[in-house]
Design a protein around this nucleic acid. Structure first.
Length: 594
DNA sequence: AGTGCCGGGTC
DNA sequence: GACCCGGCACT
């Protein structure tokens, strides 16, 4: 979420660019992902790198997209305030981040700036509800830096309306309150993320429970589902061209949605329910499979692949194992929420373990289904991540498989900045494909820790990870268009950005193949005649006239002549009435079969 | 040329 | 489906 302002502030010590990052300054980056059907997803990443001295970030812009921005990228920002630089410029400054939607980003006017502890403030934007097409929201809450030298004076103040108006920045205190604001910030971020989704499929009744990240994830998923629902073909995809699909207007976000969302921040088991409730576009089969889905929580801490079944458990794990906090303490600033990701696994295949996320194994499942391979399908260039983007990448990709194996996707999005260590955390989420297609998605990204903190949030990549999702930036929009099926098997090695981008892996559905492709080269329709040629048949007084291995090219499908005597020879023309019917009809003899 | 039988037509 | 037959490949 870089903004022009930030860019312009480079002179003040905050410059958003990969170079700046390398120079030890701050880089704020973000992604905007827009999907067809008016759903835009995004994620953003904030990376603060510090080469020398303390953190120099004081905040960054919170932007959100609104309907207008999506529909008419060319329109000037009506919100006033800080406009981005030209899309091109901005893009160049951000292209390292995967998808920088030029028209998808807009700075939020002061009135819509999320204020700490007031997540509900995002309910409306300048009195305008978020509708349709949305949107990306990037909530990056950067603690205000205590170092004035690196921060323009205008950014030093607290998030007063004036300041907010001036820059839409969210000042971030250097010393973070372990609780209180932190939770609120997390909540706010979550709300923003959730609000960024189309409310079309938001289910107010689903507010039973769910942790903050879960709710956010759900929101994303819902947005995705909305996108999907807008698709008219089986091959659903998120296409920038679908952004203006009028057939899927999204109703205004209702208060109930917000309420339910807020209320849902307590539980942790609502995901499944939510998932079963949403995705109305899926056919019954996927619905059924939903029942076998289980949400697991995987620790994203580097070199930590711990997977727990409950969010509380993973949070506890993160708190105790990684954050060095008292595990027994219920006090949580919510930070740990971002250090794990939800993964949906199918209980049917859960036993296979995550290590089996590798692509199909010919020895077990035979060749992958006839999915079009990535190499076979035109697709946009993979996200080219600069070192900066590798630090805080976040991507969203949608992967399409073929027909029944279509599934959906992946997603994620939250970015959270830990003031103490400038950790960038993110919430990753994976949805599992239907019909046995298993997906895993994870966000990875290094974090340049401040103060030499070794912390680095690089989500472990499961085996068989796919390359970063395709990114479509046509027309200047930042669109992740992972419509092309991903050929997982070919990707792990070709993913140069080991720590960047999302990786997707899948396991092919339990498609049964009779044998490897190479073994079926001789498969052909077996005619009766061939059936009459058992290998045990021993020709009498004749050499083997026909060699299966050397079929005559001219004969084509004509079966070799049988070795057995036929009715003609046995009975002769005189006793034609004794012939078998086939022989009489000049068909393959049915009596003396080979 | 003889044989086997495929493919097609007719009833 | 039964029956017939032209035609081809093969021996």
């Amino acid at each position: 979420m870089t903004s022009k302002r930030l860019l312009d502030e480079s002179a003040g010590g905050v410059r958003v660019s990969s170079a700046a990052v390398q120079a030890g300054n701050v880089a704020l980056t973000g992604h905007c992902i827009r999907y067809g059907g008016g759903v835009t997803a995004m994620d953003c990443g904030i990376t603060s790198a510090r080469r020398k001295g303390p953190m120099t970030v004081d905040g960054f812009d919170t932007k959100m997209l609104d309907k207008g921005s999506l529909q008419d990228p060319g329109k000037a920002n009506p919100l006033g305030g800080n406009h981005f630089a030209s899309g091109r410029e901005k893009h160049h400054n951000k292209k390292k981040m995967g998808c920088a939607g030029e028209e998808d980003e807009r700075e939020v006017p002061p009135a819509v700036v999320l204020k700490r502890g007031s997540p509900t403030h995002r309910q409306t934007l300048n009195g305008q509800r978020q509708e349709n097409h949305v949107h990306l929201e990037c909530v990056a809450l950067l603690r205000r830096s205590q170092e004035p030298r690196c921060r323009p004076p205008s950014r030093v103040a607290d998030p007063s309306p004036d300041e907010l108006h001036a820059s839409s920045h969210i000042p971030v205190p250097r010393n973070r309150n372990p609780s209180g604001h932190a939770d609120k910030e997390v909540m706010a971020a979550t709300v923003l993320s959730t609000l960024s989704t189309s409310p079309l499929v938001l289910n107010a009744s689903s507010g039973a429970s769910g942790s903050v990240p879960e709710a956010a994830s759900r929101g994303w998923k819902e947005s995705l589902s909305a996108s999907y629902s807008s698709s008219t073909s089986g091959n659903w995809s998120w296409d920038a061209s679908d952004q203006s699909v009028p057939s899927t207007p999204s109703p205004p976000l209702s208060n109930d949605v917000i309420k339910s969302f807020l209320l849902s921040s307590q539980g942790e088991d609502s995901i499944e329910e939510a998932e079963s409730t949403h995705f109305p576009f899926e056919d019954p089969i996927p619905r059924k499979r939903k029942n076998s889905m289980k949400v697991m929580f995987k620790c994203l801490w580097k070199n930590c692949d711990k997977v727990l079944s409950t969010s509380s458990g993973i949070q506890r794990h993160i708190r105790t194992m990684h954050l060095g906090r008292n595990g027994d303490s219920d006090l949580s600033d919510g930070e740990e929420d971002f250090y794990y990701s939800e993964i949906e696994v199918n209980v049917d295949t859960l036993s296979e373990g995550l290590s089996n996320l590798t692509p199909t194994s010919p020895t077990t499942a035979g060749p992958p289904p006839v999915f079009p391979l990535a190499s076979d399908v035109p697709r946009s260039e993979p996200a080219h991540m600069s070192p900066l983007s590798q630090s805080a990448p976040s991507t969203l990709c949608h992967i399409r498989t073929d027909h029944a194996y279509q599934v959906a996707l992946v997603f994620f999005a939250l970015v959270y900045v830990c003031p103490e260590s400038l950790l960038v955390a993110r919430s990753a989420r994976v949805t599992r494909g239907v019909a046995g297609t298993r997906w895993c998605a994870h966000v990875s990204g290094g974090v340049a820790p401040a103060g030499g903190s070794p912390m680095q949030l690089t989500s472990p990549r499961p085996l068989g990870c796919a390359p970063p999702p395709e990114r479509c930036e046509e027309q200047g929009s930042a669109v992740f268009q992972a419509t092309a099926p991903v050929n997982i098997p070919s990707v792990s090695s070709e993913l140069p950005h080991s720590q960047s981008a999302i990786s997707v892996s899948w396991q092919s559905p339990p498609v049964i193949f009779k044998g490897p492709p190479g073994a079926v080269t001789h498969i052909r329709t077996v005619s009766n005649g061939e059936k009459r040629q058992p290998a045990t048949h021993t020709p009498i007084g004749k050499t083997h006239a026909t060699n299966m291995s050397t079929p005559k090219p001219t004969t084509g499908t004509r079966k070799p002549r049988g070795e057995a005597k036929k009715c003609r020879k046995v009975y002769g023309m005189e006793k034609k009435d004794l012939w078998c019917t086939a022989c009489r009809w000049k068909k393959a003899c049915q009596r003396f079969t080979d």
